[in-house]
Every structure is written in structure tokens, then in C-alpha cells.
Design a protein around this nucleic acid. Structure first.
Length: 422
DNA sequence: TCTGGGGTCCTAGGACCC
DNA sequence: TCTGGGGTCCTAGGACCC
């Protein structure tokens, strides 16, 4: 028997992070933009009230409206660091904290008679120590805790405890919840469910799991059982390794120049390899993707190619050779590419890999291992891309546009916040 | 002019084996 | 004339999440 579970969710997380170090943003409509200052990906309550939708392209916001609001470039280094601080406070209160995304974490409270006062204390503690406001939902299953969290956001206390499935308030609440608001039900599934007359969370919770399994999938059957109060979803091991590692970016402007594209690819390969070594894994294959803008009609084009390596590797040089090979195969003259990415695949732990008859026997491998760890140390100390394999020009079209980024004041000495005494 | 970047899991279907 | 069947592995693609 497992559960209950609490879901701790940071309110308007990216905006809240910005506000911690820029008090002038309190009470002001604030939006955070995606990479290249493309779309709005996070909004303050004030901005939501002005009707600015999630995902709307920044250039489509009316100029009159734009003058009334503040748009910031995203500052992932800051958000990542603030996220780690919130987790640290949670771990000081509870065992069983499982990060779920940059702004959410579960607490597995199996065997723990938790009280609402305790959760309130956690909430206040996070606010005081990090400056970040959070909402907490508590329920017997994760799917119900997700729902409870929605209610917590509306509650003035910021904490909501789901009534037990035996409580008459439970079905009433599920009846009031449209099925598309259930965790795991996206647009497509909601449409198919509605076609079958399943319109609310309650209807889904009372549907026959076997029938759901046959008509849809095992995941939907489990979601239904979770709504009815039976915990089915195990959490991914929080520290588990990724199965694939991707680095991709839109270019700040489309290009057909092979030199420029190859530099972007080199940059992504360097970054993916760094992430790979950080989690202590090797890769057996490199996938390269290159595509045009999605918004140019029939001329759009998406190419991808997978290059298998001779043996599992952590070596940026080897990945770059593969990426170059992929580029030769994919590149088409005259196509204006908008985005490219490098994915490392078939990952395995360095300590669990099968030995190859041919791999890792030459002196070259050990020499490169040493070189790679020096590279990583240098980049940790002097900032990303301080040292890269292969030439990467700092001013090409692949460089991120982020004209309104706040300072990375919690992770960079040279960007510390300044306080002026008046 | 300008439209994000990661991930996960599941399923269907083909290839291949015996 | 008659033309198996079950299992596994792999891949592509769909759907979802934040």
C-alpha cells in the first residue's frame, strides 16, 4: 500500500524567480520568453488576466499591449539553481522527495500521517528561504494529487487536501472536473473520450479499466484507477539516468550556409557530450536532425539520420566525426535550415558497458578520456563553451537571441546582484 | 523580420528466427 | 489443390508532460 502523495508546485515559477531579484516586477504583468525570445512560455497572474495566451509568439502581441507589460528572456541557469534550492528546503522537511520537473516535486508520504499544518509550515518555509511561492496538493494517488494541486492554487491557503474516495465530496469534485483537466489526458485523448460520452473525471473514474485498456491504452486504464483512489503510478527513480540526450536550438535566423550550420552542430555536439559525461554514461549512436521552419508551407523539410558508433563512447571527437558524416548525408543545397539538433542515443553507464573486442584498447582512448575531463573542468570553472572541440564563432546566426535576460546572480560571481545604499 | 526545448512511455507493424 | 504460427526485437510514430 503506497500513498498518500503531496505535489508541491511552484507558482508561475519562472516569473517568481525573476521577482525574487527584481522586486519592481511585483504586481506587474510579466511574461517569460522561450529561447530566441520566440514565444511566451510563462506568465504572471496579471499577464494571464490581460488575456495573453500560453505559447503565443512575442511578435504577435499588439504593440499597445506590449508597452504595458514586461517580457523577459528565459534565464535557465537562474531557474535551475532556484529549483535546487526549493528541493533542498523540501528535503529538510521530508524524506521521499522526488523531483518531477523544474517547478514540481512529489513527496511520497507512505506511512506518514501528515497534517495540513505541516504542509503549511513547509510552504512558508520554502517562501521564507527561497522567495518562491508554492501550492501543495495532497491525495491518495498522484493523479488525484495533481487535481488537488489545481484546487490549492485557487485556495487562499495554497494547500488543498483531497477528500477521501469514501467521502461524498470526492465524486462531487470529480464530476465538476472536465476530463481534459486530468493529468495524462491531452487534447487528442479528451476528444476520443468525449466521443464515447466520457466527459468528466468522474465518468473516467467509474469506467471499466479493462474496456479502457482494450479501447485505449494501459496508461489510460491506470489513470482511471488512480482517479478512483488506487495508486498505480510508480515514480521514475529521481536519480535515474536519461535514455537519450538531446541538444537542439532554432537558429536566430534561417540559413543555408553549410559552414554556419556545421558550427551550430559542433556547438550542440559539444554540449550533448558534456551532459553525457556529467551523468557518467556512454553513447553508441549519434542522431542529427536538421529542419526548416515549420511555418513555410509545403517547402518545409525535416531530415534526420542516425550514425552508429563502432563502440560506446564519451568522446566529443568521435561524436563530431559522426555528426559531420550525418551532415554530409542530410544537407541539401538551397534549403534554408531553421533548426538543428544532436541527440546521443543508446546510453549506458560507463561501469556497466559491455567490453568490445576493438574498443578502448588503444592509447588514443585513454588520452582522449583525460582530455575530455580537462575540457569539462575548464567549462565548469570558466563557463560553458570556454573550451570547445572545433571552431565555433561566437557571433553566428546559431547564437541564441536573449536580449532581455536577467543576471545569473546565483551562479556567476561576475553577475552578482548589486545593492545600492541611498 | 520574428513562431521553444527538452523528455517519457506505449503501440503497431515489419523483419527475422525456429 | 494445399501455402504455419508463435515469439522476439527493432523502429517509427503518436501522445503526453512541463
Amino acid at each position: 500500500m503506497s500513498g498518500p502523495f503531496a505535489l508541491v508546485d511552484c507558482n508561475n515559477f519562472y516569473v517568481s524567480c525573476e521577482r525574487v531579484f527584481a522586486p519592481r516586477l511585483h504586481g506587474v504583468p510579466v511574461g517569460i520568453l522561450s529561447n530566441n525570445d520566440g514565444c511566451v512560455i510563462a506568465r504572471s497572474e496579471e499577464l494571464k488576466r490581460l488575456g495573453v495566451a500560453m505559447g503565443v509568439p512575442a511578435h504577435l502581441i499588439a504593440p499597445a499591449l506590449k508597452r504595458k507589460i514586461v517580457l523577459c528572456s528565459s534565464n535557465y541557469e537562474l531557474y535551475g539553481d532556484m529549483s535546487a534550492r526549493v528541493l533542498e528546503v523540501m528535503r529538510a522537511h521530508y524524506k521521499g522527495v522526488e523531483p518531477y520537473s523544474i517547478d514540481e516535486a512529489w513527496i511520497d508520504l507512505t506511512g506518514h500521517a501528515v497534517t495540513i499544518d505541516e504542509l503549511n509550515a513547509l510552504r512558508q518555509s520554502i517562501r521564507r528561504l527561497t522567495g518562491i511561492p508554492v501550492s501543495i496538493g495532497l491525495a491518495p494517488t498522484r493523479t488525484l494529487a495533481k487535481l488537488a494541486n489545481r484546487y490549492a492554487k485557487r485556495a487562499s491557503s495554497g494547500v488543498y487536501v483531497m477528500p477521501a474516495p469514501s467521502d461524498p465530496a470526492h465524486p462531487a469534485l470529480l464530476r465538476a472536473t472536465p476530463v481534459d483537466q486530468v493529468w495524462g489526458i491531452g487534447t487528442r485523448l479528451a476528444l476520443r473520450l468525449k466521443a464515447q460520452g466520457i466527459l468528466t473525471a468522474h465518468a473516467l473514474s467509474t469506467a471499466d479499466p479493462h474496456a479502457l485498456r482494450r479501447a485505449f491504452s494501459v496508461v489510460l486504464a491506470r489513470t482511471a484507477m488512480e482517479l478512483a483512489g488506487t495508486a498505480c503510478f510508480e515514480m521514475n527513480d529521481a536519480d535515474s539516468d536519461k535514455h537519450a540526450l538531446m541538444t537542439s536550438r532554432s537558429l536566430s535566423r534561417a540559413t543555408q550556409c553549410p559552414t554556419a550550420l556545421m558550427q551550430a552542430i559542433r556547438q550542440h555536439t559539444n554540449r550533448s557530450a558534456e551532459k553525457l559525461r556529467q551523468q557518467g554514461s556512454t553513447a553508441r549512436a549519434v542522431m542529427l536532425t536538421m529542419s526548416t521552419s515549420k511555418h513555410i508551407g509545403p517547402a518545409r523539410h525535416h531530415g534526420r539520420v542516425v550514425i552508429e558508433l563502432e563502440h560506446p563512447s564519451q568522446d566529443t571527437f568521435m561524436f563530431l566525426r559522426a555528426a559531420r558524416q550525418g551532415f554530409e548525408a542530410l544537407y541539401r543545397k538551397g534549403v534554408r535550415y531553421q533548426k538543428c539538433g544532436v541527440m546521443l542515443m543508446d546510453l549506458a553507464r560507463t561501469d556497466q558497458q559491455q567490453l568490445s573486442l576493438l574498443g578502448n584498447v588503444s592509447g588514443e582512448a585513454t588520452l582522449n578520456d583525460a582530455l575530455m575531463s580537462t575540457l569539462d573542468r575548464a567549462n565548469r570553472r570558466f563557463g560553458q563553451r570556454a573550451l570547445t572541440v572545433g571552431f565555433i564563432d561566437g557571433a553566428g546566426p546559431w547564437q541564441l537571441k536573449c536580449d532581455h535576460r536577467s543576471s545569473r546572480c546565483t551562479t556567476r560571481w561576475d553577475e552578482l546582484a548589486r545593492v545600492r545604499r541611498t
